[in-house]
Design a protein around this nucleic acid. Sequence first.
DNA 1: CCAGACGTTGTT
DNA 2: GTCTGG
DNA 3: CCAGACGTTGTT
DNA 4: GTCTGG
Length: 223
Amino acid sequence: MCGRFSLAEDISALQQYFDFEISEEISPRFNIAPSQRILTVISDGQKRRAGTMKWGLVPFWAKDEKIGYKMINARAEGIDEKPSFKHAFKRRRCLILTDGFYEWKKQEDGNKQPYRFIMKDKKPFAFAGLWETWKKGEQPLHSCTIITTTPNEVTEDVHDRMPVILHQDSYDLWLNPKNDDTEHLKSLLVPYPAEEMDLYPVSTMVNSPKNDISYILSQLNSK
DNA sequence: CCAGACGTTGTT
DNA sequence: GTCTGG
DNA sequence: CCAGACGTTGTT
DNA sequence: GTCTGG
């Protein structure tokens, strides 16, 4: 996991829900893939600031930004010890905003069936992420990664990993750049309660008129 | 010591 | 930058 | 992560 | 099978 997710909400609703300031335009998408720019929230120590970052962490020491293609996920286990993640874990944690994510289940006939995971209350939510700044010539590149953990009772039938989803009351703790309580931070990186989540199969994940945001929303509303 | 990797998921 | 493997 | 290509010749 | 692009 977590290779794909979505962001179908309109920005003002997200802004109200997550309480951040933003100066960028973002567009809703039903299927966000690695290497694309995704909506993140960080803390400057005072306020929550939102902006886009490229999905695929490029550590500050990287010589080649292509390394980001291998850094789309970070396992929660040992995240504070891995050379690629330890710096970001200590100082650069972020939220990654979403309203659903996808996992593929391998069926007996060999085909893969995509499933969409959402909250039962259909509200947006946030993955725990890390971010970095990398100097690309003159232009700094901001990139990020999504942290994964073991599955809960809803996701385990489809996949053996799931993204770390944070509770609203732990956002500030996670984002605070001055928080260096490693054990406490790591204690947040656990599976989200299955009781609050829901899933349903989706027909296909290719770009098509049937897979735009209105289609996804109509599926949500018909449940 | 230097050189080279630094990651995850899933194996048609 | 920092760790691992040789 | 999945989906889709996996090639060359010859050039708008 | 393996790499690339999204």
